[in-house]
């Protein structure tokens, strides 16, 4: 996860960083992610989750991905239950506080079927930042004295060479691939993110490959009219996939809120019987539909319209 610096630069130099169109389908993008790859997942909790890409990876039968995300919601449950991942690095893992402790997370971690590797939220962020900076670690002043660090052999406690103060060092995290969902980008991958950016800028620059999904693909002229809004540069991006409602049933800032009815129904189904509930959900919503559009059909027009109404009115009413 913290490769040799020469190797890190080599992998970047090997990528085609030219200004070129890289639009492809979800299936084509999924083929860029190998089994056992380390995958950084953008967004946080219910926000800008790259759900369409995760959905495509599960459908493609990916196995044993090592996934890292700031905070993990029910997309982590789907990754565990489908076998796409058995190792998730995150600071917090459950669908959301209003739905209680995740039964799937509990089932998989308590029985040793999967691993939830817990780091503090800032530690996850600084690991991506160190990765983005091309340095092997960053110092921080939290996680010291707690049991979290005791369970993480990759951390180091040092005395600062300048002040003598104790500092916690966390290693860089340079995932093989980052999955990031954005409001808009052009065909080259110049990505504009509205609202909360979470850790996505660092994640994009840390990763060795970036797959963008986007609510819509816009012209390069539109990007150039507002270059200050571009948060991820095209040269860091390897694939662009247009996926409207690409975070649903989670939210995308300024465009739609979460589909709360769907998430409530999902949580109720899991509560009744975690194992069978999630299996049936995967069958119906992930493996069943023939396309992302058909998946959206299953979520339903009424719920998507309501999510859209709520999402667009938050900042513009």
């Amino acid at each position: 996860m913290t490769p040799d610096y020469a190797e890190l630069c080599h992998r970047t130099h090997e990528r085609d960083r030219s200004l070129r169109e890289k639009v492809m389908s979800l299936d084509e993008a999924a083929a860029l992610v190998a089994d056992n790859a380390s995958v950084g997942i953008g967004g946080s909790t219910l926000s800008r989750t790259p759900m369409a890409m995760i959905w495509a990876l599960i459908r493609a039968g990916r196995k044993d991905l090592f996934c890292a995300r700031s905070i993990t919601s029910n997309e982590g449950e789907l990754l565990f239950a489908s076998g796409a991942s058995r190792h998730l690095l995150t600071s917090w893992f459950s669908q959301g506080i209003v739905w209680g402790v995740s039964r799937i997370m509990r089932l998989y971690t308590e029985t040793g079927r999967a691993r939830f590797e817990e780091w503090s939220h800032m530690a996850v962020g600084l690991r991506f930042r160190a990765g983005a900076m091309g340095v092997p670690f960053l110092p921080m002043r939290s996680m010291m004295g707690s049991d979290i660090a005791h369970r993480l052999p990759e951390t180091r406690l040092i005395d600062c060479p300048f002040t003598g103060a104790k500092l916690m060092l966390v290693p860089a995290l340079n995932p093989d691939v980052a999955l990031i969902h954005v409001q808009r980008c052009d065909a080259y991958g110049n990505a504009q993110i509205d609202g909360l950016p979470f850790m996505d800028l660092d994640l994009a620059m840390a990763a060795n490959r970036v797959i963008l999904t986007t609510e819509r693909i816009v012209s390069n002229n539109k990007i150039r009219r507002a270059p200050d809004q571009t948060k991820i540069p095209f040269m860091a991006v390897d694939a662009v996939v247009e996926a409207p409602f690409g975070s649903a049933p989670h939210e995308c800032y300024g465009i739609y809120e979460p589909c709360f009815e769907h998430l409530d129904a999902y949580a109720a189904q899991i509560r009744r019987d975690p194992e069978e509930g999630v299996r049936a959900y995967l069958e119906r919503y992930v493996y069943g539909p023939k396309s992302w559009a058909e998946y959206l059909d299953l979520l339903g027009l009424r719920e998507l319209l309501d999510a859209r109404r709520r999402g667009t009115s938050i900042h513009d009413d």
């Binding site: 909790t45 209003v98 939220h121 800032m122 909360l196 300024g254």
Partner: peptide
């Protein structure tokens, strides 16, 4: 539903990356 959704940002003074706010 958490401190990571757009409802948190409505009428805020600023949005930052989560690492930076921490």
């Amino acid at each position: 539903p958490s401190t990571n959704e757009q409802r948190c940002a409505r009428r805020a003074n600023m949005v930052l990356g989560s690492t930076d706010v921490l």
